[in-house]
Structure formats: structure tokens, C-alpha cells
Design a protein around this nucleic acid. Sequence first.
DNA 1: CTTGACCTTCCAGTGACTGGAAGCCCTATG
DNA 2: CATAGGGCTTCCAGTCACTGGAAGGTCAAG
Lengths: 127, 127
Amino acid sequence: MNISEAASRAGLPPKTIRYYEEIGLVAPRRDTNGYRSFTEAHIHKLHFLARARGLGFSIEDCRTLLALYEDAGRASADVKSVAQDHLAQIEAKITELTAMRDTLTELVQACAGDHRPDCPILKGLET
Amino acid sequence: MNISEAASRAGLPPKTIRYYEEIGLVAPRRDTNGYRSFTEAHIHKLHFLARARGLGFSIEDCRTLLALYEDAGRASADVKSVAQDHLAQIEAKITELTAMRDTLTELVQACAGDHRPDCPILKGLET
DNA sequence: CTTGACCTTCCAGTGACTGGAAGCCCTATG
DNA sequence: CATAGGGCTTCCAGTCACTGGAAGGTCAAG
């Protein structure tokens, strides 16, 4: 199957699939005309990547997870370790964003938002 | 004052200050030796930028906020509008990350994390 | 035979820095 | 006075994961 069908099957843009090939995450064969030719196994792999990326794993994490996925002799501890590290990063990010949100919410609520120049938001940024 | 003192006063790395000059956010004068020379007003501005960036505003938002900050005739509504848009983006991001966290937490909890290959995390990524 | 939808590669840009190299400048010390 | 160190300068490249666009080859339908 050609790239656009693979793309819609995997839930990824064609451009992204070409990029994944470039960085060695998938290796479709080529037809005689030079077109990429994807098999079901490729779709499966691309779908896995789409899911992992959707959960925020980095490309390098995805590479690791894919290798574990294809290694029948893996230890689930290795997978869990990658996932836990990532989870910790997500939680740190949520904490950071929540702090920003709380501060911003206060400032926004304090601001009249009218034609006058007096603005608690700017004052809050000053300090 | 030279860049390293300005940096510690403003709470920004020297590299970042040079970058901010390059993109036109600050314009320190130069001493005869070519060194940047920062005044209190520059520190004030840089500090404002550090705070705004710390709250997650983009550089372009910062540029806008700085212009409003320096415009005595601004309407606070304009500031509030920028802040509200940003707040909405932060909230969207928190929602996204929270969904990721919830899914990942479930998967991690379901995974034994031992020497065996059976792994609910990989299964979860498959589907 | 042409049209239009595919496909290919390659190059450049995104955001906001950050690291590093090469080289000038200033101060203090021997 | 020479030198050693630290700080300053510019410029270039790299980060991350794509994304847009140009130039050109390929294929099926009418």
C-alpha cells in the first residue's frame, strides 16, 4: 500500500511517516517506481508509534519502546521504567502549568479589563 | 553595568539577554569597547520579560505585553485579552497532559515490572 | 494526450534558546 | 612589562519533531 493509505490507516500524516523512515523508525520497501510500499506489519508499527507519541513519549523513548515491543525476551520492568520516567516528567509539567494557571487566574480576575490603563496583570509581571 | 551583572539582576542567562537584544526586546547601548551597557531601566524590562516568560507567555506575547506596559494610554482590556488567551492555552495543555497522565498511570499500575516479557503497557500502546 | 492526483526528494523554517569556537579586552600579579 | 585569568564579543550549529513548499516523476481516467 502507498503512503497516503498507510497514513490514514496509522493515523499519521504522510510527512511524518517519511520523517520516521528518515530517522530509522520504519523501513518500508520500495516499488519499482520508487514509491514506498507498506505492509500490515508497517501499519502496526506506525500505529504503535502514533499511540506512543500521543501519550507524549519522545521519539527516543518510542525507539526504545519499539525495540522492547519487538523483543519477545524483554523484561516488563524495562518497559515500566521508561513509562514511569515519562510519567514523572508529565507530572512535573502539570505541576508547573498548574502554578502558572493559578497565578494567571488571579491576575486575570483582578483586572477590570476596560478602557482604563490601570492593570493588575502588568503590575504582577513587574514584581 | 555589564551583561553578567545584568543577567544576575534580571534572573536570566547572559545568552538569553543577547538573544533578546537580537530579536529586538531590549536595546542596551554599547561602551567604547563594544561591551553592552545596561541601565536600571533595562534591568526592569528584562525582569518583566523573565516574569512573563516564567508564566509561559510566548516571546511574541511578551513583545505585546512589553509594548502595553510602556504605553501609558493602554486599555487594561488589551492586557487582559492577551492573558486570557494564554490562560486558555495553558488550561488546554493541562487537560491534555492530565489525560496522558491518567492513561499512563493505569498502564504503569497494571504492569508487573519484573523479568517476564508480558507487559500491559506495550499492549496498551498496541491498541 | 492531457489532466489531476498521487508520489518522490530536498531545503528551509518553527520556538526559544543553548553550546561552543575564535578572538578581543581588562585587571591583577610576578 | 609580560602574562594569566576571566569576561566580553560575534557567529555558527544544534535542539525537537515535525511542517510547508518547490521541482519534478508516475499513474489512472476520460
